[in-house]
Simulated scan of single mutants.
Amino acid sequence: MFNLSHPKLVTLAETEGYAEVADFLEDYALDSIVPAICMAPNCDHTADLEPDQRAGFCEACGRPTMKSGLVIAGLI
């Protein structure tokens, strides 16, 4: 099931300069590196990671909480 309204996904899309989550996903759906965001509360650090990343290391808070925008949306 797709989840295009998740708050972290909306934040990630806006950080990348997109007004609409759908436009963000369309541009990155087939890339080998995509934007990811930290899922920890009070941390919105972003980085470019693998499309299927679910537990990447966050350089800001030090936790394994980085998740790809494609994973958050439910595309992967």
Rank of each mutant, 00 (worst) to 15 (best):
C43A: 06
E16T: 01
A36L: 08
E20Q: 14
N42G: 09
D31H: 13
G17D: 14
G17A: 15
T11M: 03
T15D: 06
T11D: 03
D27Q: 08
I33G: 09
A36G: 07
T15A: 06
T46Q: 07
A19K: 13
D48V: 05
L25P: 07
E20H: 07
Q53G: 03
M39L: 11
L25C: 03
V10Q: 06
G56V: 00
I37C: 06
V21D: 04
Q53E: 06
E50N: 11
A40D: 05
P51Y: 00
P41E: 11
C58T: 03
I33L: 15
E20R: 11
Q53L: 09
G56H: 01
L49T: 10
P35L: 00
V10K: 07
L12H: 00
D52L: 01
V10A: 05
P7E: 02
D44H: 12
P51G: 00
F57R: 14
F57E: 08
G17M: 10
P35K: 00
H45T: 05
A55T: 15
A19Y: 10
D44A: 10
Y18W: 09
V21W: 01
E50M: 13
L49Y: 11
A47W: 08
D48T: 06
P51E: 00
R54G: 01
A47N: 10
N42S: 14
F24Q: 15
D44G: 12
E26Q: 12
P7L: 04
T46D: 05
E50Q: 15
E50K: 11
Q53Y: 02
L30K: 13
L49V: 04
I37L: 07
E50T: 09
E26H: 06
A36S: 14
E20N: 14
D44K: 12
D48N: 14
V10L: 04
S32K: 14
H45E: 15
L12A: 00
D44T: 08
V34L: 07
F57Y: 09
A22M: 10
I33K: 14
T46I: 02
T15S: 05
C58H: 01
E59W: 03
D27A: 03
D44N: 12
S32F: 07
P7G: 01
I33W: 15
K8G: 02
E14L: 11
A47Y: 11
L25V: 02
P41T: 12
R54P: 03
D31A: 07
E14C: 13
C38D: 04
M39D: 08
L9S: 01
T46P: 08
D27E: 04
F24Y: 05
V21M: 09
E16P: 04
I37V: 13
S32D: 11
